[in-house]
Amino acid sequence: MIDLQQITFGWPDRPALLEIPQLSIEQGERIFIHGPSGCGKTTLLNLIAGIHPAPQGSITLNGEQLNTLSGSQRDRFRADHIGLIFQQFNLLPYLSVQANVELPCQFSKIRRERAEQRYGSVAEAGLSLLQELGLSGLLQQPVTDLSIGQQQRVAAARALIGSPEIIIADEPTSSLDSANRAAFIELLINECDQNGSTLLFVSHDQSLAQQFPRQIDLLQLNRAGEAV
């Protein structure tokens, strides 16, 4: 469960960027967040992921009020409960595909235990995720040898391993062509459904919206007058 109340956020020396009176997202929901470039989509995701602290209002994830936690507690919480996929440059270039995918389980005990519970071992969890994402042939490849689309799928596998409650994806498909884009989203949604994870998906590409039961237009949600 994600619950935002009375959030205001502005960059220093700028008018408020975000003013969100209320936003609730149920566990397991799939949300499509859209809005024009620069309207604050990435900023909102970073607030939810605890990457930026929210100065006002409250952000509650799984009953844990994020903005009362210290910086390192938020780090901890993020590692245990949130899988992140960025727009690009998701992977560590010096690790193999498999090692990149297993990384979150190395840092989070909770995710390691979940992966072991469900698949028997971390390696097994990584393998079957990669298999489902159609990457089983590339396990020992250096990630730099992969195409962008393949890299994004590896990033998805890494976000999904250890079944975090929340998956946050910030324009993960912007560098894919439309056929690959559709396939990627389908895979991501399938995995989230199997894990029961909440999926927050940001894109300004409206054609993807139909895959998502719930859509949020940030321009409508946001009350800050300055949003461009």
Binding site: L91, P104, F107, R158
Partner: peptide, 12 residues
């Protein structure tokens, strides 16, 4: 690279 590590759970 360091941000990616932080994002997957590495502490400062």
């Amino acid at each position: 690279e360091l941000a990616i590590l932080r994002a997957v759970g590495a502490r400062p």
